[in-house]
Design a binder for these strands. Structure first.
Lengths: 242, 242
DNA sequence: TAGTGGTCTAGACCACGCT
DNA sequence: GCGTGGTCTAGACCACTAT
């Protein structure tokens, strides 16, 4: 019996891959303008309609922004994007507010087995670990534990703690050239540990929403593991189902 | 100063609305084949490319299924759809399993103020309430409280409890002509009430993941309010972030 | 072989933003 | 006015399904 032949990807899919490759390799940087559609079409050897389909795909993933009359731009990790795409906690009254941050600890070390596994690293790889306390409406609400590969973020561990911005993804993009493209989250309800409880002003054992997130860069590699334990008395996590 | 003129919707958006209207009004029923693209284009007075764009939009929302060589079909609430689109709890080992169900109570009554508000009903409207216990891998794992407008589901409250299928959305679609098109979920961590704890075999106060869902029918009206309290020792809720 | 959706092209015209 | 992306059309060809 003959094996089924793998059909080649359609042109628009290959055009998309080529454009994604350029985005990931830094040919076009965050905020920069891409060439107009006819130029892209010519350089890729396809029609404008085909390159348009590829661009529409990429725009749907929020990696580029298209504006009629102006052009196509590489998406930036702005506050608005963080708020609406990467931060899903909303006040029970419907208000959204980006939390403030207070760094608790920041240092590098060898990856544990679990960290290496979750980030897709070699066993001996080094990682940088960050712990933060985050405030919603002025009150401590989230304890956050963040682990990133040291190789991608050279020098992150020696930054002054007060120097770390609230929105890390903008820092990753601007200072280290790592653009977070998407993330996968797993949620559980857990009991607050004594340390969680102390940070959040709750009793030990109080229910917390644990958000376990792996963030992926443009090239598809995992670039951050983040576990956030959230007090959800006055806030909730929103999710759309289709 | 002159008011800004509202621009008309593009043709493909109006075509989409017309097609959605036909889907919602039951002109085409679940599982049935739609007319071929050229026929739809002619009946809507647009080109095939335009009707195609509308159909692609609708297919992306999982309301129709397009199959090359066969045609376009109205989506059904199959087990696979329930599992991958409307049930986000996954075993920590990655396995997905649809939970079994045991009905605890089923009866009709006037809506509370909160129920009327969440479902968009008049204050005096009647609702049907259902409580279920759901099993994951054979163990009680979810306590579920469901409220639906009685007007949409005539006679649901007099069904035999054992007659209620595990997958309610298929029942809604097949017996009542109500197709759930999308849903909005809010998640919180809560402490198990004594009743929750008794049903789930946990201690009172144990952390539970509360999923509060409003489901919307094809016409956009709320058709179900469901609150699920889940034990997440061996399972987690998955969410994709872009 | 006929019918269907999927891909790809070429080109016209429109709406928007800038200068 | 010019350059840009957005809409819409017409038509060619391909791939899959059923008969």
């Amino acid at each position: 019996m003959r094996a089924k032949l793998a059909r080649p990807l359609p042109l628009y899919a290959r055009a998309k891959q080529a454009l994604m490759q350029k985005l990931g390799s830094g040919v076009w940087r965050a905020g920069e303008k891409l060439p107009p559609e006819p130029a892209l079409a010519a350089s890729l050897g396809v029609s404008q309609g085909t390159v348009r389909r590829a661009l529409d795909d990429i725009a749907k993933a929020n990696l580029i922004v298209r504006r009629q009359g102006r052009g196509t731009y590489v998406a930036e990790h702005t506050q608005a994007r963080a708020l609406f795409h990467f931060f899903h906690l909303v006040g029970d009254d419907g208000r959204r507010a980006l939390p403030g941050s207070r760094v608790l600890s920041l240092k590098a070390g060898p990856a544990t087995r679990e960290e290496a596994s979750r980030l897709g690293l070699a066993a001996a790889a080094r990682v940088v670990r960050l712990q933060r306390l985050r405030l919603l409406d002025g009150a401590a609400a989230i304890v956050e534990r963040i682990v990133v590969p040291a190789a991608l973020f050279q020098g992150l561990d020696v930054r002054d703690r007060a120097d770390l911005p609230n929105e890390l993804y903008k820092l990753y993009q601007d200072r280290f050239g790592v653009s977070v493209a998407r993330a996968a989250e797993r949620l559980k309800a857990v009991a607050a540990s004594p340390e969680d409880a102390a940070h959040l002003g709750l009793r030990s054992g109080a229910p917390l929403l644990e958000i376990d997130r792996i963030a992926f860069a443009l090239d598809g590699r995992a670039c951050e593991w983040r576990v956030s334990r959230c007090a959800t008395h006055r806030h909730h996590y929103v999710s759309e189902v289709v």
